[in-house]
Design a protein around this nucleic acid. Structure first.
Lengths: 211, 211, 211, 211
DNA sequence: GGCTAAGCGAGACGGTACGTCGCGTCTTCGC
DNA sequence: GCGAAGACGCGACGTACCGTCTCGCTTAGCC
């Protein structure tokens, strides 16, 4: 996220303490007052750092927030192997939705996604450092499913990812509706067919029923 | 969008000319330099209006842009009645995607969606004035399908809308991938089953094929 | 000192209230904490003005201080006509020295003279707006004396001015010694000969005494 | 100028090389860009020294400049003994004016005099290390003249020094007029009477002429 | 010859002030 | 009384230097 520096060069080393304080201050201030009132001055004051120290290591306050938020989000979505595409997908959705229910985190993510629209350079970094990682995680599941031949015909893996992340982000950004288990069930049904125990072997049973 | 005024009031009437010039200036400046460089001062200068005139009629520059952009977007997505849910959905997607391919328009929409995350009050207006209208349009199609019993089981109409708009917005905001006919086909397949002529009556053909 | 503007143009007029408050704040802060701690931010805060308002009308804080200080200094040195060069000069010195004993004023003048050395553009303005005016005042006296034929031979008026202002500024800047009546007497003696009532008709009596 | 250190203590010795490089860099940068753009960082970079090395040996950049400039100025004004006050004074003025015509040197001196107004502690050091030394030099001449009874009546030696240095500094700081031989003549005439070869034994010839 | 003390270049650190930009408000004048 | 022009108070920006503080490294006397 931040630059790698030649470790054998002279001069005082970067202060890990300051780094932590800055990241923490950014998260705290966003939680307390909202992204709209987050300022570099504020982060500096809260963290006890000088503004220059922030500018030295991050190109914008958004990147501070990205680094602060990324650590939190990264950890909590392991890639499960439950034995079937359906189960894997369900587990991925459950874990992702759990993150999506943490208000402080989603407030940060919404702000970052917003800034990614307005600041192109940051947008690039946000996509690489966050969005793509989440897609990569899902891709592992989808690749495995593909290898097993479990993926539905006519819908490439990329589009499945678009649907999964599309729904998550749309609810975060546009409707604010909760990411609950019901939605997870529905998405699983749409993307991997109805639960095996149901009398319905395929999605569009209702139509066929009528015939 | 803007206030209704008692038409029998004394004094000079609101200048329609100024309104048009302001909306046009907002769109032009966004197209030329991007939302990040859009300012009230800039709109005033470009349009020949005074800043006060803008503040008198719009609560923020975002609302100017919303009014400017909404007019454009509203018109082009009629609600078709093609006889079947599948065909209606396909038509809706095609029309929506066509809008989503107009770069100048999507740049404005991306900026508005971004601002909606950062400015809560504007977010409310944006959802009401834009996002909800698009959902309402789709809802007409979905209600009709529901009445005809064409909707897949296990997936409420609201979730279908989340998928449709989720994918559209996710591509606009996150990946920048084009909204093409292939995607329309795939989404239609996912949400309304495979094309009737395909010999594949249901989605999860591939799995059953293997059996 | 500050720009003349076309009085018939549209828009809000410059706030005389703000101008006064800014000038007063600059003087107060210099008196309280010294020029070294005078800042634009401080002037703005003390005066209740915005920084931009200061930058709009003065090119630097030094020019604020110059305008603030000039008003004070201008008034108090009238150009006397006492009937003789000697008496005129003595009166000029007395009045100038009186100013030079006002500590708050000389602190400002010393700071301005200092800044004139460091900032060339300001130096030009300081010379024109202040230093030259003082020379002009003395020039009136010297011209009158010249016309009367009272000026000593071999020393042009310009050099007399250099001596008068040189001594004043040197004491202010270099030694801090008081500008007292004794000095006024001595300078008058050097530049206009000994007092007429003295038994010494000319300056270099002592030398002739010894012969 | 710089601290005396116990010569018998352990540890690396002060680098004379660094000292020279720092003084040279300070002079060069002042000559090239002016005092206003002289910074500690700049001196360190130009000289290849670290900032700490500068702060270790000098309390401020002004003191660096003072030490750099003083060496140059000290040497060139020997105290002559020409046999008469008049001749001594003339020689002192000539030598001083010669220094005052070296632009690079006077730029430094003007900056130092300026800083002496703004930074009181440095002012003290500047007066002691530079201004007082020049007065002391002149004092030798004046004491000698006093002992010989050559000084004009009614004007103490201190005031003569004020006039001499006052005129020099005033021209440097305020008018920028050259310090030429004509001025030396005029000052000599004012302070020591007209040249002995002239028919005018005393200053105020013009007035007596008219009688 | 190893130890200890100080100086060295380098560069990150907490600060302060800078000068600018844009905001949203206000005042003035002309239509 | 609307609308342009534009000054106003305000707050944040990103930058420049300040003076201090580690770093890892020389360099020199002393045991």
């Amino acid at each position: 996220m931040t630059d790698q520096l030649d470790p054998a060069r002279p001069g005082r080393k970067r202060s890990e303490e300051a780094r932590q304080a800055i990241l923490a201050a950014a998260l705290e201030l966003t939680a307390e007052a909202g992204y709209a009132r987050l300022t570099i001055d504020g982060i500096a004051a809260r963290s006890g750092a000088g503004k220059q120290t922030i500018y030295r290591w991050w190109p914008s306050k958004d990147d501070v927030l990205l680094e602060a938020g990324a650590g939190e989000a990264d950890l909590h979505v392991p890639i499960p192997d439950e034995g079937s595409y359906r189960a894997d997908l369900r587990a991925f959705l459950t874990a992702s939705f759990a993150l999506g229910r943490r208000r402080q985190l989603t407030d940060v993510l919404r702000a970052l996604m917003a800034r990614a629209q307005i600041d192109d350079a940051f947008g690039q970094r946000f996509r690489t450092a966050f969005l793509q990682r989440r897609r990569d995680a899902l891709a592992v599941i989808l690749d495995r499913a593909q290898a097993r031949g479990e993926l539905p015909a006519g819908v490439p893996a990329g589009t499945i990812a678009d649907i999964v992340f599309g729904v998550i982000w749309y609810r975060l950004l546009a409707t604010g509706q909760a990411l609950d288990n019901k939605l997870a069930d529905e998405l699983t049904t749409v993307l991997a067919g109805p639960p095996s125990g149901s009398g319905e072997p395929a999605l569009h049973a209702s139509r066929r029923k009528r015939t």
